[in-house]
């Protein structure tokens, strides 16, 4: 990054921060075979798709920069930064590849070590720390923003495999909003079992692309076709349109989709009927008027 300000950037130079999901549970689930995505596309194959994609990003423009961040279940960390190479650095494709793999190995060891002390509840849904890696990516982007008046166009690409972690909701939403504020689009490519509500929202809010490839063995082709182009060129491409995302809220109490309801004025929890006390944050409410549509706390969403 030290040499960055001296470079002459144009608007088709990209900084791509790739978040790689290294959730051991998800990838190990493919060991048993079956129709699990990790069986169709085991981690080694997945890397076979991703690393060439990173290389091709670097090929697109001499000044392009790629940063790889791994998302574990206990920690997150920078794996690779093409800007760190220096003049004689690892331009060689195989060198980049081996560096990534080496660092990834170290990362998984670290992730395991950190998790040792605090054995998390076993089960199917241990999610990766998406909020953490998003924050790392945004920090990196902020650093680039401050590097000079002209800088590469940053974007974030999430390669998500594991399911969403509801407990990270607030953190993830905050990260999404800060990305929106700093005009950083979050692209997402979901290789997991189910769609990710987080990433759907993230891409929708920040103006990125959300994609869940139907054929995982052709992942590279999806990546190259959809996520490789710089932001400038995107305007001229026919890219997957955001599916009409239904952001209608459902109430916290019965999970019913509602058009109109009560909102806690403190924590914004939604209820379909009047509550004496907010179940989420514990705020106590005054006696509400009978009709919900006359209350000031009602929401209207089409």
């Amino acid at each position: 990054m030290a040499s960055a300000p001296s470079k002459l950037y144009s608007d088709d130079v990209s900084l791509v921060v790739v978040l790689l999901d290294a959730n051991p549970f998800f990838w190990a689930a493919g060991a048993g075979g079956g129709n699990h995505p990790a069986a169709t596309l085991p981690f080694s194959k997945f890397l076979d798709h991703v690393i060439p994609f990173l290389n091709s990003l670097l090929l697109m423009n001499q000044l392009n920069q790629v940063v790889l961040i791994a998302t574990g279940i206990n920690t997150c960390g920078y794996i690779y930064d093409s800007g760190n190479g220096g003049p004689e650095g690892s331009d060689n494709v195989s060198e980049i590849s081996s560096e990534i793999l080496l660092r990834l190995e170290e990362f998984v060891c670290k992730d395991r070590k950190i998790g040792k002390g605090t054995e998390r509840a076993m089960g199917g849904s241990v999610s990766s720390l998406l909020s953490g890696s998003l924050s790392l990516a945004l920090c990196y982007v902020q650093k680039v923003f401050r590097s000079g008046a002209i800088h590469p166009q940053p974007r974030i690409l999430c390669l998500q495999a594991s399911p969403d972690g509801p407990e990270q909701y607030v953190a993830v939403m905050n990260a999404i909003f800060s990305a929106q504020r700093s005009m950083v689009p979050i692209d997402s490519c979901v290789v997991g079992v189910q769609h990710s509500a987080f990433l759907q929202q993230a891409s929708y809010i920040t103006g990125g692309i959300y994609l869940k490839p139907p054929q995982l063995d052709g992942l590279f082709q999806y990546l190259a076709a959809v996520f490789a182009t710089d932001l400038q060129s995107r305007n001229f491409l026919q890219l997957p349109k955001p599916a009409g995302v239904d952001f209608r809220a459902s109430c916290f109490c019965h999970k019913k989709t509602i058009d109109m309801g009560y909102v806690c004025s403190v924590c914004l929890s939604i209820f379909c009927q009047h509550q004496r006390k907010c179940s989420t944050c514990g705020s106590e409410f005054n006696q509400a008027p009978r009709e919900p549509n006359s209350a000031s706390d009602t929401i209207r969403k089409a």
């Binding site: 909701y169 607030v170 769609h195 209608r248 809220a249 916290f252 999970k255 989420t280």
Partner: peptide, 19 residues
Amino acid sequence: IKDPREYFDSQQANALRAL
């Protein structure tokens, strides 16, 4: 906030249904 999960759940159902 006792459990931020609630926020997620309240949206996820709809979001996934749409897809």
